[in-house]
Design a protein around this nucleic acid. Structure first.
Length: 260
DNA sequence: ATGCCGGGCGAAGCCCGA
Protein backbone atom coordinates (compact mmCIF):
# COMPACT_ATOMS: atom_id res chain seq x y z
CA UNK A 1 0.00 0.00 0.00
CA UNK A 2 1.39 3.36 -1.07
CA UNK A 3 0.74 6.16 1.43
CA UNK A 4 1.73 9.77 0.73
CA UNK A 5 1.70 13.07 2.58
CA UNK A 6 1.58 16.46 0.85
CA UNK A 7 1.08 20.01 2.06
CA UNK A 8 -0.62 21.44 -1.02
CA UNK A 9 -0.87 25.10 0.11
CA UNK A 10 -4.51 25.51 -1.01
CA UNK A 11 -6.28 22.51 -2.55
CA UNK A 12 -8.27 24.78 -4.86
CA UNK A 13 -5.23 26.61 -6.24
CA UNK A 14 -3.38 23.30 -6.54
CA UNK A 15 -6.12 21.08 -7.97
CA UNK A 16 -4.66 20.53 -11.47
CA UNK A 17 -1.24 19.64 -10.02
CA UNK A 18 -2.80 17.37 -7.40
CA UNK A 19 -5.00 15.52 -9.91
CA UNK A 20 -2.03 15.02 -12.24
CA UNK A 21 0.07 13.63 -9.41
CA UNK A 22 -2.69 11.29 -8.23
CA UNK A 23 -2.88 9.80 -11.73
CA UNK A 24 0.87 9.61 -12.21
CA UNK A 25 1.93 8.39 -8.75
CA UNK A 26 -1.23 6.35 -8.08
CA UNK A 27 -0.98 6.37 -4.27
CA UNK A 28 -3.53 4.32 -2.35
CA UNK A 29 -3.75 6.92 0.40
CA UNK A 30 -2.88 10.62 0.44
CA UNK A 31 -2.68 12.78 3.56
CA UNK A 32 -3.22 16.42 2.58
CA UNK A 33 -2.48 19.57 4.57
CA UNK A 34 -3.22 23.28 4.17
CA UNK A 35 -6.45 22.91 2.25
CA UNK A 36 -7.26 26.58 3.01
CA UNK A 37 -10.94 26.01 2.37
CA UNK A 38 -14.13 24.85 4.04
CA UNK A 39 -15.49 21.33 3.53
CA UNK A 40 -18.21 22.54 1.14
CA UNK A 41 -15.64 24.03 -1.25
CA UNK A 42 -13.29 21.03 -1.24
CA UNK A 43 -13.11 19.66 -4.83
CA UNK A 44 -14.39 16.23 -3.79
CA UNK A 45 -16.06 15.44 -7.13
CA UNK A 46 -12.86 15.73 -9.15
CA UNK A 47 -10.92 13.63 -6.65
CA UNK A 48 -13.65 11.01 -6.31
CA UNK A 49 -13.65 10.64 -10.09
CA UNK A 50 -10.10 9.29 -9.77
CA UNK A 51 -11.35 6.61 -7.38
CA UNK A 52 -10.63 8.21 -4.01
CA UNK A 53 -12.82 8.40 -0.94
CA UNK A 54 -12.35 11.64 1.02
CA UNK A 55 -12.35 12.49 4.73
CA UNK A 56 -12.19 16.28 4.97
CA UNK A 57 -11.54 18.58 7.92
CA UNK A 58 -11.56 22.03 6.37
CA UNK A 59 -11.36 25.60 7.64
CA UNK A 60 -11.87 28.95 5.98
CA UNK A 61 -8.62 30.52 4.68
CA UNK A 62 -6.23 28.65 6.95
CA UNK A 63 -5.14 25.12 7.82
CA UNK A 64 -7.40 22.27 6.78
CA UNK A 65 -6.45 18.59 6.40
CA UNK A 66 -7.84 15.62 4.48
CA UNK A 67 -7.38 11.91 3.85
CA UNK A 68 -7.85 10.50 0.36
CA UNK A 69 -8.11 6.72 0.01
CA UNK A 70 -8.82 4.25 -2.76
CA UNK A 71 -9.89 1.84 -0.02
CA UNK A 72 -12.90 2.36 2.26
CA UNK A 73 -12.50 4.86 5.10
CA UNK A 74 -14.06 4.24 8.49
CA UNK A 75 -13.85 5.51 12.07
CA UNK A 76 -13.11 9.07 10.86
CA UNK A 77 -12.34 11.58 13.60
CA UNK A 78 -11.41 15.25 13.31
CA UNK A 79 -9.42 17.41 15.69
CA UNK A 80 -6.62 16.43 18.05
CA UNK A 81 -7.77 15.34 21.51
CA UNK A 82 -6.90 17.27 24.63
CA UNK A 83 -8.10 20.84 24.05
CA UNK A 84 -11.78 21.54 23.40
CA UNK A 85 -10.98 25.21 22.68
CA UNK A 86 -8.63 24.41 19.79
CA UNK A 87 -10.65 25.13 16.66
CA UNK A 88 -7.82 25.04 14.13
CA UNK A 89 -8.29 22.27 11.55
CA UNK A 90 -4.97 20.44 11.86
CA UNK A 91 -5.80 16.78 12.46
CA UNK A 92 -7.94 14.11 10.82
CA UNK A 93 -7.66 10.38 11.45
CA UNK A 94 -9.29 7.36 9.85
CA UNK A 95 -9.06 3.60 9.55
CA UNK A 96 -8.32 2.32 6.05
CA UNK A 97 -10.01 -1.01 5.42
CA UNK A 98 -7.96 -3.08 2.99
CA UNK A 99 -8.04 -6.67 4.23
CA UNK A 100 -4.64 -7.75 5.53
CA UNK A 101 -3.22 -4.35 4.51
CA UNK A 102 -5.50 -2.34 6.77
CA UNK A 103 -3.89 0.64 8.47
CA UNK A 104 -4.87 3.59 10.65
CA UNK A 105 -3.69 6.93 9.30
CA UNK A 106 -3.73 10.57 10.37
CA UNK A 107 -3.11 13.73 8.38
CA UNK A 108 -1.25 16.21 10.57
CA UNK A 109 -0.60 19.91 10.10
CA UNK A 110 1.54 20.76 13.12
CA UNK A 111 1.60 24.47 14.01
CA UNK A 112 4.49 26.49 12.60
CA UNK A 113 5.21 28.30 15.88
CA UNK A 114 6.92 31.44 14.59
CA UNK A 115 7.89 33.88 15.93
CA UNK A 116 9.38 32.03 18.90
CA UNK A 117 8.64 34.72 21.50
CA UNK A 118 4.88 34.64 20.96
CA UNK A 119 1.76 32.64 21.80
CA UNK A 120 2.13 30.89 18.46
CA UNK A 121 5.23 29.16 19.76
CA UNK A 122 3.49 28.18 23.00
CA UNK A 123 0.62 26.79 20.93
CA UNK A 124 3.10 24.67 18.97
CA UNK A 125 4.62 23.28 22.17
CA UNK A 126 1.20 22.49 23.61
CA UNK A 127 0.03 20.92 20.34
CA UNK A 128 3.10 18.67 20.23
CA UNK A 129 2.43 17.53 23.78
CA UNK A 130 -1.12 16.61 22.81
CA UNK A 131 0.11 14.81 19.69
CA UNK A 132 2.54 12.82 21.80
CA UNK A 133 -0.22 11.75 24.19
CA UNK A 134 -2.47 10.69 21.34
CA UNK A 135 0.37 8.93 19.53
CA UNK A 136 1.03 6.96 22.72
CA UNK A 137 -2.66 6.02 22.95
CA UNK A 138 -2.60 4.77 19.36
CA UNK A 139 0.34 2.48 20.08
CA UNK A 140 -1.74 0.63 22.67
CA UNK A 141 -3.99 -0.63 19.86
CA UNK A 142 -0.98 -2.45 18.37
CA UNK A 143 -2.35 -1.61 14.93
CA UNK A 144 -0.27 -0.45 12.00
CA UNK A 145 -0.44 3.35 12.28
CA UNK A 146 0.91 6.01 9.92
CA UNK A 147 0.99 9.57 11.27
CA UNK A 148 1.88 11.66 8.24
CA UNK A 149 2.00 15.34 7.62
CA UNK A 150 3.70 18.69 7.75
CA UNK A 151 5.35 18.50 11.16
CA UNK A 152 7.07 21.88 10.87
CA UNK A 153 10.08 20.27 12.55
CA UNK A 154 13.60 20.02 11.08
CA UNK A 155 14.70 16.83 12.87
CA UNK A 156 18.47 17.18 12.48
CA UNK A 157 21.12 19.61 11.25
CA UNK A 158 21.46 17.66 7.99
CA UNK A 159 17.78 18.20 7.23
CA UNK A 160 18.33 21.86 6.31
CA UNK A 161 20.67 23.63 3.93
CA UNK A 162 22.19 26.04 6.45
CA UNK A 163 21.84 25.69 10.22
CA UNK A 164 22.76 29.35 10.77
CA UNK A 165 19.73 30.48 8.77
CA UNK A 166 17.35 28.37 10.86
CA UNK A 167 18.93 28.81 14.29
CA UNK A 168 16.29 31.24 15.55
CA UNK A 169 13.37 29.60 13.79
CA UNK A 170 10.61 27.67 15.57
CA UNK A 171 11.17 24.69 13.25
CA UNK A 172 14.72 24.28 14.51
CA UNK A 173 14.53 25.00 18.25
CA UNK A 174 16.20 22.33 20.42
CA UNK A 175 13.07 21.87 22.55
CA UNK A 176 10.92 21.44 19.44
CA UNK A 177 13.30 18.87 18.03
CA UNK A 178 13.39 17.14 21.42
CA UNK A 179 9.58 16.90 21.46
CA UNK A 180 9.65 15.40 17.96
CA UNK A 181 12.24 12.86 19.13
CA UNK A 182 10.12 12.06 22.17
CA UNK A 183 7.32 11.00 19.82
CA UNK A 184 9.77 8.81 17.92
CA UNK A 185 11.00 7.43 21.25
CA UNK A 186 7.49 6.20 22.04
CA UNK A 187 8.13 3.68 19.29
CA UNK A 188 7.51 5.50 16.01
CA UNK A 189 9.86 5.51 13.04
CA UNK A 190 10.69 8.42 10.74
CA UNK A 191 10.11 6.30 7.63
CA UNK A 192 12.28 8.31 5.26
CA UNK A 193 15.20 8.58 7.67
CA UNK A 194 15.04 4.87 8.47
CA UNK A 195 15.67 3.99 4.82
CA UNK A 196 18.08 6.78 3.85
CA UNK A 197 21.47 7.86 5.19
CA UNK A 198 22.03 10.91 2.98
CA UNK A 199 21.63 14.43 4.32
CA UNK A 200 20.42 17.62 2.65
CA UNK A 201 17.38 16.02 1.10
CA UNK A 202 14.30 18.21 1.41
CA UNK A 203 10.51 18.32 1.22
CA UNK A 204 10.01 22.12 1.31
CA UNK A 205 11.60 25.01 -0.55
CA UNK A 206 10.58 28.64 0.02
CA UNK A 207 8.96 30.46 -2.88
CA UNK A 208 11.37 33.35 -2.29
CA UNK A 209 15.03 34.01 -3.00
CA UNK A 210 15.29 31.28 -5.61
CA UNK A 211 15.25 28.65 -2.87
CA UNK A 212 14.08 25.86 -5.20
CA UNK A 213 16.63 26.67 -7.91
CA UNK A 214 19.44 26.76 -5.32
CA UNK A 215 18.11 23.69 -3.48
CA UNK A 216 17.84 25.70 -0.28
CA UNK A 217 15.29 23.50 1.40
CA UNK A 218 14.30 21.77 4.61
CA UNK A 219 12.89 18.31 5.40
CA UNK A 220 9.78 18.89 7.50
CA UNK A 221 7.16 16.56 5.99
CA UNK A 222 7.33 13.22 7.73
CA UNK A 223 5.68 9.80 7.83
CA UNK A 224 5.81 8.37 11.36
CA UNK A 225 5.17 4.64 11.58
CA UNK A 226 4.10 2.52 14.52
CA UNK A 227 6.13 -0.70 14.97
CA UNK A 228 3.43 -2.72 13.21
CA UNK A 229 3.59 -0.36 10.22
CA UNK A 230 7.39 -0.07 10.31
CA UNK A 231 7.65 -3.87 10.08
CA UNK A 232 5.92 -3.58 6.71
CA UNK A 233 7.97 -0.62 5.39
CA UNK A 234 9.46 -1.47 2.00
CA UNK A 235 10.24 1.94 0.56
CA UNK A 236 10.03 5.66 1.31
CA UNK A 237 10.78 8.44 -1.15
CA UNK A 238 10.44 12.18 -1.61
CA UNK A 239 9.02 12.99 -5.06
CA UNK A 240 10.46 16.36 -5.99
CA UNK A 241 8.66 16.38 -9.34
CA UNK A 242 5.62 18.39 -8.23
CA UNK A 243 7.82 21.15 -6.73
CA UNK A 244 9.33 21.89 -10.14
CA UNK A 245 6.01 22.40 -11.86
CA UNK A 246 4.25 25.66 -12.66
CA UNK A 247 1.92 26.77 -9.87
CA UNK A 248 3.69 24.43 -7.45
CA UNK A 249 3.09 24.11 -3.73
CA UNK A 250 6.17 25.02 -1.69
CA UNK A 251 6.05 21.44 -0.33
CA UNK A 252 6.45 18.24 -2.35
CA UNK A 253 4.97 14.78 -1.64
CA UNK A 254 6.66 12.20 0.59
CA UNK A 255 5.43 8.64 0.19
CA UNK A 256 6.04 5.18 1.61
CA UNK A 257 5.20 1.68 0.51
CA UNK A 258 3.94 -0.83 3.07
CA UNK A 259 3.89 -4.51 2.15
CA UNK A 260 2.08 -7.35 3.88
C1' DA B 1 16.43 34.65 7.15
C1' DT B 2 14.19 40.63 7.46
C1' DG B 3 8.31 37.62 3.99
C1' DC B 4 11.83 39.82 -1.69
C1' DC B 5 6.64 34.72 -3.07
C1' DG B 6 2.14 33.04 -3.12
C1' DG B 7 -2.58 32.13 -1.36
C1' DG B 8 -7.05 33.83 0.88
C1' DC B 9 -10.16 37.40 1.20
C1' DG B 10 -12.30 40.55 -1.44
C1' DA B 11 -11.63 44.11 -4.31
C1' DA B 12 -6.59 47.35 -1.65
C1' DG B 13 -3.93 45.90 1.26
C1' DC B 14 -3.33 43.00 5.16
C1' DC B 15 -2.83 38.22 7.35
C1' DC B 16 -0.42 34.12 7.09
C1' DG B 17 3.09 30.68 5.95
C1' DA B 18 8.42 28.48 7.20
Amino acid sequence: MKIATWNVNSIRARLPNVLDWLVKAAPDVVLLQELKTIDQNFPAMEIQELGYNCAIHGQKSYNGVAILSKHPLSDVSTGLAGDKDDNQARYVEAFIEAGDESVRVASIYLPNGNPIDTDKYLYKLEWMDRLGKHAADLLRSEEPVVLGGDYNVIPADGDCYDVAVWANDALFQPEIRAKFRSILNLGYSDAWRDLHTETHVYSFWDYQRGAWQKNNGIRIDHLLLSPQAADRLARCEIDIGPRGRAKASDHTPVWCELTT
